Simulated scan of single mutants.
Amino acid sequence: MDKTILDKINKFTRRKLSEDEVYVFSVILCDNDIDRDCERFSDEALEELKERFIGRTGIFDHEATTVNQNARIFDTELITDSSRSTAYGKPYRYLKAMAYMVRTDENKNLIAEIDGGIKKEVSISCAAAKRICSVCGCDKSIASCAHIKGRKYGGSLCHTILSGITDAYEWSFVAVPAQVNAGVTKKYSEDDTVKAQAVQQISEADEELRRDIRKLAYFSGGRAAADIASLSAANLDTHGLIELRKAFERQCGKGRAEVQLGVNEKEAETNDMFSMRQEG
């Protein structure tokens, strides 16, 4: 398990838990599509829920008792799926959360049910200050209008847009959620760690390439050339960085392994680097 994940989990614990002590899984909490109650969250509401749901507890059937607590959210992410559209024609967005449980004898059956797809559907409990009519824009929390949820007006389904989130209470495993797509997506697996490590390794390799490019550019044209090369390399991917480094190597007439600083050159570069840090 990635150390970053454990660090996020341990922000909520009294002592640091080890990888073997926790069970981690991801869950879709809600989205911006029209649900079974003919309501939906605005994009702004999803942004607010993203922040408010960190640290919130997971229970069953919205029964808010301590013995009913089974999991806690330690991270959230708002995702846009451009391949899908909502019922009202906008890009589909959903709030994904990462939750953890402490492995115990009491919850091993629950973990098995989550892995087996039995415990899957979830529902959230929150407070919204605004309830906007999709047809006329009336805020039904302070006034009423003639439009009825579930009916079509001008070919469009009337629904209520929830916005202005004031609180997020909890999320629950339920049998039938209001939001069709809300539920456990998958268990956290070693594949996630492998992918994260691969991304980190690519990032580190790219930074090394950028350092090589700056050094080679410095040999070619001094500090000004190094500054320009750094700007050029900043947004290049790995392939682009390799090609740029090769170009500077050809310009210098040396391979990367052969590049060495002479005593005077090394002193000059060190002074330049010190000046840059002072100016920064």
Rank of each mutant, 00 (worst) to 15 (best):
D2I: 12
I5A: 03
K8I: 07
I9F: 00
K11R: 12
R14K: 12
R14D: 13
E19D: 14
E19K: 14
E21V: 05
V24H: 00
S26E: 15
S26D: 14
V27D: 06
I28R: 05
D31K: 03
N32T: 00
I34N: 06
D35G: 07
D37A: 14
D37S: 14
D37W: 09
C38I: 09
E39K: 11
R40W: 08
D43G: 08
A45H: 07
L46V: 07
E48W: 10
E48Y: 06
E48I: 10
L49N: 04
L49E: 04
K50E: 14
R52A: 10
G58Y: 06
I59S: 07
I59N: 07
D61P: 01
E63Y: 15
E63P: 11
A64P: 05
Q69T: 13
A71M: 15
D75H: 06
T76S: 10
T76R: 03
L78G: 08
L78V: 02
I79F: 08
I79N: 13
S85V: 15
Y88N: 10
Y88C: 03
G89W: 04
R93A: 06
R93H: 10
Y94P: 00
Y94F: 14
K96R: 13
K96S: 13
A97M: 04
A97Q: 06
M98W: 13
A99T: 07
A99I: 03
Y100V: 00
M101Y: 03
V102D: 02
T104A: 07
T104I: 10
T104V: 07
E106I: 14
K108S: 12
N109A: 08
L110Q: 05
L110Y: 06
L110A: 05
D115M: 04
D115L: 04
G116Q: 02
K119Y: 09
V122I: 10
S125N: 12
K130L: 13
R131D: 09
R131H: 15
I132T: 07
I132K: 01
I132M: 08
C136E: 03
I142H: 11
S144V: 14
C145Q: 01
A146Q: 09
I148W: 01
I148Q: 11
K149T: 07
K149F: 00
G150Q: 09
G155P: 02
H159G: 02
H159Q: 11
T160Q: 11
I161R: 01
L162C: 02
S163L: 06
D167G: 10
E170I: 11
P177Y: 06
Q179H: 07
V180A: 15
V184M: 09
T185Y: 06
T185S: 13
K186S: 15
K187R: 15
Y188I: 01
Y188C: 09
S189N: 09
A196P: 00
Q197N: 12
A198I: 09
V199Y: 11
Q200D: 09
S203Y: 13
E207C: 11
R210K: 09
R214C: 12
L216C: 10
Y218E: 02
A226N: 05
A226F: 06
D227G: 05
S230A: 14
L231C: 12
A233V: 04
A233Y: 02
A234V: 00
D237T: 12
E243S: 09
R245N: 02
R245M: 13
R250G: 13
C252G: 13
K254M: 14
G255W: 04
R256G: 01
R256F: 10
A257E: 15
E258D: 15
E265M: 07
E267D: 13
E267A: 15
E267P: 00
A268I: 03
E269A: 14
T270S: 14
M273T: 03
E279R: 11
